[in-house]
């Protein structure tokens, strides 16, 4: 059951600002790949912006995040600076990981971004460990693991939910159900009608929400964060959304249901929320346009910075395989 929270105007606008940043960034990434200016395997998150935007306004820089290859939206919402991101995905030494991680393995501990994995299901068990650290040091941090609907079918998901429940860990399992895992549709691979229902088996709350509705998503996020901070244990959130651009950007998405996709794209949450903020008087058209223009300007700077930056020197190839022994 979702609590009823009142969302104040500034928070509503802040959620929009984060959505605008994520959407603008995704569009720029796709443009750079399409024009061949950047070579990378790009997993577009277009259509899923509401989830991290509404989640992250409930988190602090100290809270932890473990995310996936399709997780640049999670990281930007958590505060990953654009310049560091772009230099990394361009493989440059000024990137978050000196260009050695790339788009699937960004890390930025300053904002709590601890792990980005390319292995399905791997975020949940690791987030448990981060949550355990908070429990040990009583520092009030919350750990957030994000993952897809497909990941809820792998053993790691089930092991992690059980462990978190038994240990009452301050962790949030955020499933971004975009209805496909690679080319396989939800129903063909997932037995549960709702992934949130899987929480029942582990005795923890499972919240099923419309991940494209900022108000609902905010409520679920806040409820889970408050529960975690109060020491009451983990929450599973299933945020239902849709992936607009196939699994890997550039795939032909023949395997997708055309009508389903068309309906999802027509219900793009971004313009809907934008219109709503203006209609309810929370923000003016000019204010929102300014936010969007600022995003574009920041992207111009970040992309230029990344393309000018140097590649790592060859000594980096063998650096950081091991640490220095004490």
């Amino acid at each position: 059951m979702l609590n009823n929270y009142q969302l104040d105007g500034p928070t509503q606008v802040e959620i929009f600002r984060r959505m605008a940043l994520l959407k603008g960034n995704d569009e720029r990434c796709r443009k750079m790949v399409t024009t061949g200016r950047l070579v990378m395997t790009y997993y577009s998150y277009r259509g899923q912006e509401v989830i991290p935007a509404a989640m992250s306004v409930n988190l602090t820089d100290q809270d932890y995040l473990c995310t996936i290859y399709r997780g640049i939206h999670d990281m930007l919402a958590k505060g990953l600076p654009l310049k560091d991101l772009w230099a990394e995905i361009a493989g440059r030494v000024d990137g978050t990981c000196k260009g050695k991680g790339g788009p699937m393995h960004l890390t930025y501990p300053k904002k709590g971004i601890m792990v980005t994995t390319g292995i399905v299901g791997a975020t949940l068990p690791i987030a448990n460990g981060l949550a355990w650290a908070s429990q040990l040091s009583k520092d009030g941090r919350v750990a957030l693991a994000t993952f897809g609907d497909g990941a809820s079918n792998i053993g790691a998901f089930h092991e992690a939910l059980n462990l978190a429940a038994v240990w009452k860990l301050p962790v949030i399992f955020l499933c971004q159900n975009n209805q496909y895992g690679e080319h396989t549709a939800y129903a063909k691979s997932t037995s549960a009608k709702r992934i949130a229902d899987r929480a029942i088996a582990y005795g923890i709350p499972g919240l099923h929400v419309n991940g494209n509705d900022p108000f609902e998503m905010y409520a679920a996020a806040r409820q889970a964060v408050e529960r975690a901070r109060a020491g009451e244990g983990p929450t599973l959130i299933e945020a239902v959304t849709f992936r607009f651009h196939g699994h890997v950007f550039g795939d032909a998405d023949k395997y997708m249901d055309k009508a389903q996709k068309a309906a999802a794209v027509a219900a793009d949450p971004y313009p809907i929320y934008r219109t709503k903020l203006i209609a309810t008087g929370v923000a003016s058209e000019a204010e929102l346009a300014k936010i969007e223009a600022d995003v574009e300007a920041a992207l111009d700077v970040a992309v230029e910075f990344a393309l000018q930056a140097a590649y790592p020197g060859l000594e980096e190839l063998t650096t950081d395989v091991y640490g220095v022994s004490a």
Binding site: R92, K100, L314, L317, V321
Partner: peptide, 14 residues
């Protein structure tokens, strides 16, 4: 070399 596979193109090539 005894390292994980790096992302950055010049490193991957090396």
């Amino acid at each position: 070399p005894f390292t994980p596979v790096p992302f950055s193109k010049p490193l991957e090539t090396a």
